[in-house]
């Protein structure tokens, strides 16, 4: 059994979109996997989203306090990386496309996500309230590549 933390856009949940930001994501969706089967889903709002500084550390506390051992992240700042590493939480890089929590989880189960150990953006990268995902949504349901890239340059690894 393993609990996986995934930063999510709205209130969280399997059908919610993943958030590219870690420390300042609106919510975390925690998914419990047992033999690659989803056995429980929990959402937790991220009270650190608007913190002046140290959001990465506070968000890491939320992840740690919910017993996650794995996190799937887009942009990860240095403080969050330091905290997650200190807690021995395994990190996987979410692809730079819009997708739901369930979709990224499927990629994880299929072993298609790359493991990462370090931060990939500078401190305070995710600040600047509410810019988040821009662009039209376009492409309807279904898996695979969704339309509309994020205005913050989500395609930047």
């Amino acid at each position: 059994m393993v609990i996986i933390a995934i930063p999510s856009m709205g209130e969280g949940g399997l059908n919610d979109e993943i958030s590219p930001r870690f420390g300042r994501c609106p919510s975390f969706t925690f998914v419990e996997l047992d033999n690659n089967e989803i056995t429980a889903v929990k959402t937790v709002p991220n009270h650190a989203a608007n913190a002046m500084g140290g959001a990465g550390v506070q968000a890491t506390q939320i992840v740690g306090n919910n017993n996650a051992k794995v996190a799937i992240v887009g942009f990860l700042g240095p403080n969050a990386a330091m905290g997650l590493n200190a807690l021995n939480i395994k990190l996987f890089h979410a692809p730079a496309t819009r997708m739901t929590v369930k979709e990224v989880l499927d990629l994880y189960i299929e072993g298609k996500l790359e493991e990462m150990t370090n931060s990939n953006v500078a401190s305070h990268y995710g600040m600047g309230g509410g810019r988040g995902m821009g662009g039209g949504r376009g492409m309807g349901g279904g898996r695979g590549m969704g339309g509309g890239r994020d205005t913050e340059g989500f395609n930047n690894p």
């Binding site: 500084g53 140290g54 550390v57 506070q58 890491t60 905290g83 200190a86």
Partner: peptide, 13 residues
């Protein structure tokens, strides 16, 4: 500044 990372039941880091 959130310079201490504390998880329930663990020492702060």
């Amino acid at each position: 500044p959130n310079a201490l990372l504390h998880i329930k039941g663990a020492f702060p880091i």
